[in-house]
Deep mutational scan, measured.
Amino acid sequence: TETYTFDSEDQAEEFAQRAQKKGYTVEKRKENGKFKVRVE
């Protein structure tokens, strides 16, 4: 499980979609103005 942090929602969304296409489970959340994407 890895967590990635992005400054913009667009970046987080793009990353999450790519990860989902590769078959990963993706969980997105906003925390302290940053966008976190957890991938497993």
Rank of each mutant, 00 (worst) to 15 (best):
K34L: 10
E40S: 15
K36E: 10
V39E: 00
G23E: 02
Y4P: 01
E27K: 08
A19K: 07
G33K: 03
G23P: 01
V37P: 00
D10N: 07
K30F: 15
E9A: 08
E27Y: 13
K36G: 04
V37S: 00
T3R: 03
T25L: 12
R29H: 12
V26C: 08
E2N: 14
S8R: 09
Y4N: 02
T3E: 14
A16D: 01
E31P: 01
K34F: 10
V26P: 03
T5N: 04
F15M: 03
K36H: 14
F35Q: 01
F35H: 04
T25V: 12
R18L: 13
S8F: 10
K22V: 07
Q17F: 09
K22S: 11
V37L: 03
E14Q: 10
A19R: 04
T5A: 06
K30V: 13
T1C: 14
V37Y: 02
E31F: 06
E31R: 03
K36W: 11
A16T: 05
R18Q: 12
E2L: 14
D7W: 06
A16K: 05
R38T: 14
K22F: 13
E27R: 07
R18D: 10
K30N: 11
R29Q: 10
T1G: 14
T5R: 03
Q20A: 13
E9S: 05
E31I: 08
F35D: 00
K28F: 14
Q11Y: 05
E9Q: 06
R18F: 10
K34N: 05
R38G: 03
E31L: 05
K36P: 01
E31Y: 05
T5W: 15
Y4Q: 03
F6Y: 02
T1W: 15
Q20K: 12
E40Q: 14
D7E: 10
K34T: 07
E31N: 03
S8D: 12
F6I: 00
T25S: 10
E40L: 15
K22W: 13
K36I: 15
V26W: 03
S8H: 09
T5K: 03
K21Q: 12
G33D: 07
Y4I: 04
K34I: 10
A12Y: 02
Y4V: 04
F6P: 00
F6V: 01
V26L: 03
E2D: 11
T5L: 08
T3A: 05
Y24E: 03
F35A: 00
R29I: 15
E9G: 04
D10L: 09
V37I: 08
F6T: 00
S8C: 10
Y4A: 03
K21R: 11
E40G: 12
V39Q: 02
V39S: 01
E40T: 15
R18N: 11
K34Y: 10
K28A: 07
D10F: 09
